[in-house]
Simulated assay, not measured.
Amino acid sequence: MSSHDDAVSGSDNGAVIAIDVSAGCKKDAFPVGYNPWRKAVICHVAARAVGGKANRAILDLIAGTFGVPKSSVSIISGATSSTKKIEILGISRDDVISRLSGLLEP
């Protein structure tokens, strides 16, 4: 079991990832690492957290990372917080963990 496994849970139609977001970074990047205190995968977006721009950037970035349509990704909690839960429809918890394992360094 990898350290980031506890950041991913299953849902009825897909998987949910806990993320820890830093907005206003130099470039978009996901996953950047793992925050063991928040049990969340770290995400950086260049967009500022103004008018929903950062949230839209997060959804686009995660959809691209997992190769799913943008309509399959949504924020289910934490829309105004730096800690969010993102649901990805049509992909299993195991698939998300496998993809993250390939992208995150041990």
Rank of each mutant, 00 (worst) to 15 (best):
F66G: 03
G90M: 13
A40S: 13
V8P: 04
I75V: 04
A46Q: 07
K26D: 10
K27C: 04
T80C: 07
I88K: 00
V21R: 14
G64H: 03
A40V: 01
S82P: 12
A49D: 11
Y34R: 06
V41A: 05
S72R: 04
V16A: 07
D94T: 12
S9G: 06
I62P: 05
A18P: 00
H44S: 11
I86G: 00
G24R: 07
K85H: 14
T80K: 12
I97R: 03
S98C: 08
A40C: 13
P69E: 03
D5W: 06
A15R: 04
R48S: 05
V21P: 08
G14Y: 07
A47P: 11
G33A: 08
I88N: 01
A15V: 02
I97D: 00
A47I: 12
A54D: 11
F66T: 04
R38M: 15
S98F: 10
V45C: 08
K84G: 01
H44E: 02
G10M: 01
S11V: 06
S11F: 03
A47Y: 07
C25A: 14
D6T: 12
A57V: 01
E87N: 13
S3G: 11
K84D: 05
G10F: 00
A63H: 02
R38W: 04
A23F: 12
H4L: 07
D28P: 09
V41I: 04
W37T: 13
S81T: 10
T65Y: 10
K85R: 09
I91P: 04
D94H: 10
S72Q: 05
R38F: 10
I58Q: 05
G78M: 15
H4C: 11
L61F: 04
R56Q: 15
D95H: 15
N55P: 02
A47D: 15
G51P: 06
S77F: 13
D95T: 14
S71N: 06
R56M: 15
V96K: 02
D20W: 10
I91T: 03
K39R: 14
N55Q: 10
W37Y: 11
V8I: 04
L89F: 01
G33C: 09
G10I: 00
I97E: 04
L89S: 08
D12Y: 01
I76R: 10
A18K: 09
S9T: 12
T83L: 13
C43A: 12
I97C: 06
N35T: 07
I76M: 14
R38Y: 12
S11G: 02
A40E: 08
R48M: 05
R48C: 00
D95Q: 15
V16I: 15
K70F: 13
I91V: 12
P31G: 08
K39L: 04
A47E: 15
N13K: 14
R93K: 15
N13C: 04
V41T: 01
I17K: 06
S72W: 00
G67F: 13
T80F: 15
